[in-house]
Each structure stands twice: as structure tokens, then as C-alpha cells.
């Protein structure tokens, strides 16, 4: 049975018809062709699918598309504004926070969520916040530095 949904994704309203069992990540990737959000596991563990649902980081593999009806969704494709990179994107590039790039969108979405609630996280707080995001390439070392870079930049911008 199909369900009608209306979701605001990255500032654009989308209408769609989905099966109840359709996962939000699948809706984003298959219906909207927003393939920056990735699927890395089937146990809600790895965080590659992290997006923002109404402003909070969630794992879009563990949310039904129908649950996003009426919601605001931000994906990695919505991080940059008017072609200008978000500080977190800049941080990942400047500090070599990515290698293969597969976990990167989810990492950045979690990092943005962290920085919203804690503008000046310590290294320990950053590592703690990344509990639900796996990276196999970087050893997390430069991911931590990338988030510190973004925090610094965002604080500078608002100061």
C-alpha cells in the first residue's frame, strides 16, 4: 500500500508515494537521487546514512520515509549554501578528514549536529559524539581535527 508524503529536503518541497516499509535513506537515494547519503550497514550502526531530520542528526536507515512526512530534512547536498562550502566541509578538506569519502557525508552531518549543541567541543567530546559513525580509512585522527577546524571557523564567524 502506498502512502503519500510531502517532505522538505534541503529547502525544496518534494511530494512522493512510498510503501510503508520504504526507508528514508532509500527515498532520498532512489526517489530524489540524492545519493550523497550512503548505506554502510544494516544494523543502524555505521552512521553513513546520517542526515538531519527537523534539525537533529538521525540515521536515515532507521527511519521510515513515511515518518518524514511533513518534516524538514537536510542531507549532505544541502550543507553548502549558494556554492559556498559549510565550515565543516571546508574543515574536512583542509585537515584531510576524508580518504575514500564514503563515511564523510554522515560524519559531517553528525559533526554539524554536535557543533549546534556544543560550539567548542574538546577532543574527548568530539570522539564521544562520533560513537555512531564508523570510518575505516582515517583512524579518525584527522576527522577530529576537521571538526575542530570547523568549530574554530564557526566561532570566529559568529564572534
Amino acid at each position: 500500500m502506498k502512502n503519500k508524503i510531502s517532505v522538505n529536503v534541503n529547502g525544496k518541497q518534494y511530494e512522493g508515494e512510498v510503501e510503508g516499509r520504504e526507508l528514508l535513506v532509500n527515498f532520498l537515494r532512489e526517489h530524489l537521487s540524492l545519493t550523497g547519503t550512503h548505506i554502510g550497514c544494516d544494523t543502524s550502526s555505521c552512521g553513513a546514512c546520517t542526515i538531519h531530520l527537523n534539525g537533529h542528526a538521525v540515521k536515515s536507515c532507521t527511519v521510515l520515509a513515511v515518518q518524514a512526512d511533513g518534516a524538514e530534512v537536510t542531507t549532505v547536498e544541502g550543507l553548502a549554501t549558494n556554492g559556498e562550502l559549510h565550515p565543516i566541509q571546508e574543515g574536512f578538506k583542509e585537515e584531510h578528514g576524508l580518504q575514500c569519502g564514503f563515511c564523510t557525508p554522515g560524519m559531517m552531518m553528525t559533526a554539524v549536529d554536535l557543533l549546534k549543541s556544543n560550539a567548542n567541543p574538546t577532543e574527548h567530546e568530539i570522539r564521544d559524539a562520533l560513537e555512531g559513525n564508523f570510518c575505516r580509512c582515517t583512524g579518525y585522527h584527522n576527522i577530529v581535527k576537521s571538526i575542530q577546524y570547523a568549530a574554530k571557523k564557526m566561532n570566529g564567524a559568529t564572534a
Binding site: S44, G47, T50, L53, H56, A57, V63, D113, N133
Partner: peptide, 9 residues
Amino acid sequence: IGDRQVRNM
């Protein structure tokens, strides 16, 4: 519990 994203949901 879980992780940051899990706790949000």
C-alpha cells in the same frame, strides 16, 4: 544509550 543519532530518535 546507542549513539548520538540513536538518542535523537
